[in-house]
Amino acid sequence: MATLQIREALRRAMVEEMRRDDRIFLMGEEVGHYNGAYKVSQGMLEEFGEQRVIDTPISENGFAGLGVGAAMVGLRPIIEFMTWNFSLVAYDQVINSAAKIYQMSGGQYSAPMVFRGPNGTAENLAAQHSTSVDSLYAHFPGLKVVTYCDAADAYGLLKAALRDDGPVCFLESELTYGMKGEVPDEEHIIPLGQAKVRRAGRDLSLITWGKQVFTCEAAAKQLEADGIDVEVVDLRSLRPLDHQTLFASVAKTRRAVVVHEGHLFAGVGAEIVARLQEALFDVLEAPVLRVTSRDVPQPYASNLEKLVNPDAARVVEAVRKSLGR
């Protein structure tokens, strides 16, 4: 076992796959000579050269689309968005080109590629740099949407995303790039669409993903002191969604709270709540609740920002409300 920062785990996944498969190239702003805005791609230019680690102008619409075209004829691009906030100027390319090309060409062309970069809130980055794009991409058939919480999952899931034969949106986090975790020395690949039960419990299921896994784990610890035993399920992949693990957990605990960073209105949580009540209405003991970012653009001031983001206290409160104690 090696202890790696998450950025190192992500880099290891890319480097291993690029050594293995020369159809893969990395393209984005500052990925090469600057060694990555968040140093995820540090040293990659040196190893792979300018042919495969390609700096771009600030031109997301252009280079995201360029990636789709290259993927259609057999390459496997990694398109790095400096943050997913900037992907919104390339939204058309991800949705109308990458996600739809396989269907609208009658199966003749596909876009095997990974769009990746940090997503969601960091700290004090204000309205335009704090967006969680989960629901924006999970909405569209044709895309896969994947995220992780720790270094081992970051490595194993990115490996799988790089081998996937269609477009994958891979959501990272600025705040956790430096977080360390153990990653197995041997190669490992985590198939997309497999949720992970991070903590087993019997009283309620916390359904979450990304760095909110840690919020949920902190809440679980607090609740444990009061004899409340919650399960924490990390979905890891929003599309495809691991219904089996999700339903098995909630069928067991009969209660659920969904915790995510995206806004409440039409967020991914709404979809999960809908699916839970459709499948498990008769076993649910209480309405499924949601703890999400509040429905305001992210404010800059720290005190206001803290009010917006989900935190352990709000999760504890929701769990208690569901349990009635």
């Binding site: 995201a64 360029l66 390319q93």
Partner: peptide
């Protein structure tokens, strides 16, 4: 206009290979 970047990508692949 949205397919013009895709064509650049196809040309990119042709050059890459």
């Amino acid at each position: 206009g949205a397919h013009v970047p895709l064509a650049a990508g196809v040309a990119f692949a042709a050059k890459y290979r």
